[in-house]
Design a protein around this nucleic acid. Structure first.
Lengths: 152, 152
DNA sequence: GTAATTCCTTAACCTGACTTTAGGTCAAGA
DNA sequence: TCTTGACCTAAAGTCAGGTTAAGGAATTAC
């Protein structure tokens, strides 16, 4: 019923990871996985790609973008199946990024109570407006705050 | 140099909040502010709209979507300028949501170390795959995990 | 009173992260 | 062998959250 002789089919990976087939193809386009092709042109994945894709899912829950995830995955060895230690290295890097994100949110939260009710919301000097805090932004929010130009 | 006799112009609000004029118009479309119009058809805002818009900016930093923000703002009284207590009520609700979000991230983080290196990444039973944890998702990530259908 | 700003609307465009569609090919089972 | 399900590509569509453009009207500054 499944599993070709060599490598895993895209459908099998989809079932194993819970991803849509179309999503996996998209991730390949984005360089997150690099399956080979069989004689007929169909994708053939390695077992370790299940973990790669799982990692993608988890990293997304943490709020990382595809390109950030690609950067991390690019640190894995191309020539051999990643070892536990390879994954642990990535895990540590992620953990740091995550800790930073949590800290930012906590800092914002701690400013919230005093700030929303007070008049400072209208001031650029309010702690909640501090550019440092804006680092938390991931793409949402008005773009020109992030370095572009306002309307003429 | 500015400030019409009655109400505030959109440009003034833009300068006060740091938002682009186009963003403020977009927020009006989305129901986040409801300016009146003068005889010539130009928007006239109230002072309290500065705070409304500031709130939008902060809430976005916290990762809330426009429609979530609209829900909160809709709790403010329409008929009178919101009081400090009105804002504090919203602030408290936000703080709760924020605490929940931080907790989720922490829980995910605490699972990360043991999980990335182990084999469980390939299993639906892994703690990091738990549907409860998926609540953290805001729109990114494969859609059908959130209730739609996979490819035929 | 006129030029320079500012503002108006509508519509199109943009990015990220995918999904859907259309039209065909491959492969595994009866 | 034949049929059905799984797979292929390329292009277009979707949604959020805006920005940009085009063409015109209202204000403000001098």
């Amino acid at each position: 019923m499944q599993q070709p002789k060599y490598g895993l089919s895209i459908g099998y990976l989809a079932r194993r990871t819970g991803l849509a087939v179309s999503a996996i193809r998209y991730y390949e386009q984005q360089g997150l996985v690099k399956p080979e092709r069989n004689a007929g042109g169909q994708r053939r994945f390695m077992r370790s790609d299940i973990r790669r894709l799982s990692f993608v899912l988890i990293a997304q829950q943490f709020g990382f973008s595809i390109s950030q995830i690609r950067e991390e995955l690019d640190r894995l060895p191309d020539n051999r199946t990643p070892t536990k230690e390879d994954w642990n290295r990535i895990s540590r890097r992620f953990r740091e990024a995550l800790d930073a994100r949590i800290e930012t949110l906590e800092r914002l939260r701690d400013n919230l109570d005093g700030c929303i009710g007070c008049g400072c919301l209208s001031l650029q000097s309010c702690a909640l407006y501090n550019p440092a805090d804006r680092a938390a932004q991931k793409g949402a929010g008005p773009r020109y705050l992030l370095g572009d130009r306002p309307e003429t």
